[in-house]
Lab assay of single mutants.
Amino acid sequence: ALNRGDKVRIKRTESYWYGDVGTVASVEKSGILYPVIVRFDRVNYNGFSGSASGVNTNNFAENELELVQAAA
């Protein structure tokens, strides 16, 4: 299972961040479909780089994520 702070690569092909590595911000335990919230260094097309207006978190299912580096 994934944990907060883990570095993960995104495998959801239609995602803006496909192939990117993000950090797990939190994992919901309530049984929702996309329980893993991942935070990225770059914002998506809703904002400009360096601006706070873009979105830099997204929810994924565990099977859409590949663990790159476990949290220390």
Rank of each mutant, 00 (worst) to 15 (best):
Y18F: 08
I10Y: 00
A25Y: 07
S51N: 13
W17N: 01
T13L: 12
F48N: 15
V24I: 10
V8L: 01
D41L: 08
G50S: 06
S49H: 07
T13W: 09
F48H: 14
K29H: 13
D6I: 03
S30Q: 11
V38Y: 00
N59H: 09
A72W: 08
N3A: 11
G19W: 05
N44T: 04
R9I: 08
F60E: 03
D20C: 14
K11I: 13
E64G: 01
L33P: 14
S49F: 11
N59G: 14
D41M: 05
F40W: 00
G50V: 06
N3C: 14
Q69Y: 08
F40C: 13
Y34M: 10
G22D: 02
K11D: 04
L67N: 02
F60C: 05
L67I: 09
E64M: 02
A72T: 13
S26G: 12
T57V: 09
I37A: 06
E66T: 08
V8G: 01
V8D: 03
L67Y: 05
T57S: 06
R4F: 10
R39D: 06
V21F: 04
G54I: 05
V55T: 12
V55E: 08
L65A: 02
V68K: 02
G47Y: 04
L65H: 00
N58C: 15
A72P: 12
V68I: 10
D41S: 06
N44Y: 15
I37P: 00
E62T: 11
N3R: 13
K7A: 06
Y34A: 08
V43Q: 05
L65P: 01
N58K: 12
K29C: 14
G19L: 07
G54S: 04
G19N: 10
E28N: 09
V68D: 02
Y16V: 04
F48D: 15
D20R: 03
Q69K: 07
V27C: 06
G19F: 11
A72M: 11
E66G: 02
N63G: 07
N3H: 13
S30A: 12
N46G: 10
A70T: 09
E64I: 02
F60A: 00
G47R: 01
I37N: 08
P35E: 13
Y18R: 00
Y16N: 03
G47Q: 08
G5D: 05
E28A: 10
K29S: 14
N56L: 04
E66L: 06
K11M: 11
E62W: 09
E28S: 10
D20H: 05
A71H: 12
I10Q: 01
S49W: 09
V24G: 01
N63K: 08
A52Q: 09
L2V: 08
R42S: 10
E28F: 08
N3M: 12
Y34T: 07
N3V: 11
A1M: 12
E64C: 07
V68G: 00
V68W: 04
E14Y: 05
L67V: 09
T23I: 13
V24F: 01
P35A: 08
E66K: 03
G19E: 08
L65Q: 01
K11Q: 08
G5M: 01
V8C: 10
L67D: 00
N58H: 13
S53Q: 13
R39S: 08
V68S: 02
T57F: 12
E14H: 06
E66Y: 05
V21L: 06
V36T: 00
V55M: 09
V36N: 02
L2T: 03
L65N: 06
P35W: 09
I37K: 11
S53N: 12
V43W: 15
I10D: 03
V68A: 03
T57Y: 11
G5P: 01
V27A: 03
G54C: 15
A1K: 12
F60N: 01
L65E: 00
G22M: 02
I32A: 13
E62P: 09
S26I: 07
G31L: 14
V27Q: 03
R42K: 14
K11S: 05
L33F: 09
N56A: 06
V8H: 01
A72S: 13
L67C: 07
V68C: 11
V21I: 11
G31A: 13
Y18N: 04
Y16W: 08
N63I: 10
Q69V: 08
E66H: 03
R12K: 11
N44E: 14
R12N: 15
L65W: 02
R42W: 07
A70N: 07
A25W: 09
I32E: 13
N59L: 05
N44V: 07
I10N: 04
T23N: 03
Y16D: 04
F48G: 15
N56Y: 05
R9P: 02
I10S: 01
N46C: 15
L33E: 14
E28V: 11
Y18G: 02
A1D: 10
K11G: 04
F40L: 04
S53Y: 06
T13A: 11
L65I: 04
V68F: 04
A61E: 07
D6E: 02
V8T: 00
V27I: 12
N3Y: 08
G22Y: 04
S30Y: 08
R9N: 03
P35Y: 12
I32H: 11
G54Q: 05
P35D: 07
R42F: 04
